[in-house]
Design a protein around this nucleic acid. Structure first.
Length: 101
DNA sequence: TCTATGACGCTAC
DNA sequence: GGTAGCGCCATAG
């Protein structure tokens, strides 16, 4: 499980600025396909001020899965990276999704 | 051991 | 494109 966390963190740290990816993708890249929920769980335990670009991780629908203040924080951070977000809070994955080889 | 839960994904309509 | 349902897997109680 610790190994899982290490891999997750490694993958997330690889996400380039201005790009976003999904929980499922992160899990798969880390070598744990099907563990999307656990990615979110791991991130929820991380401190807000973590150095990791956790805000570049969104769900497969291109939406932020957080609520209230946390959600607006993430949205703000993404906007700072030139990621356009629709009025309904959706991000165009076609355009911003990052998928490595 | 069983049930509920979660920053999710995929398919069907 | 948007929502609803069901599946998935580890953890907490």
């Amino acid at each position: 499980m610790d190994q899982f966390l290490q891999q997750i963190m490694l993958v997330i740290s690889q996400i380039p600025q201005g790009k976003v990816t999904t929980y499922g993708e992160v899990a798969r890249m880390a070598g744990y396909p099907g563990y999307a929920r656990h990615v979110g769980k791991a991130l929820s335990k991380m401190p807000r001020d973590s150095k990791l670009p956790w805000f570049r991780v969104i769900n497969s629908q291109g939406k932020i899965s957080l609520k209230g203040e946390a959600a607006s924080r993430q949205r703000k951070l993404l906007e700072q990276e030139e990621v356009n977000i629709s009025e309904n809070g959706r991000i165009r994955l076609k355009q911003y999704r990052w998928h490595p080889e």
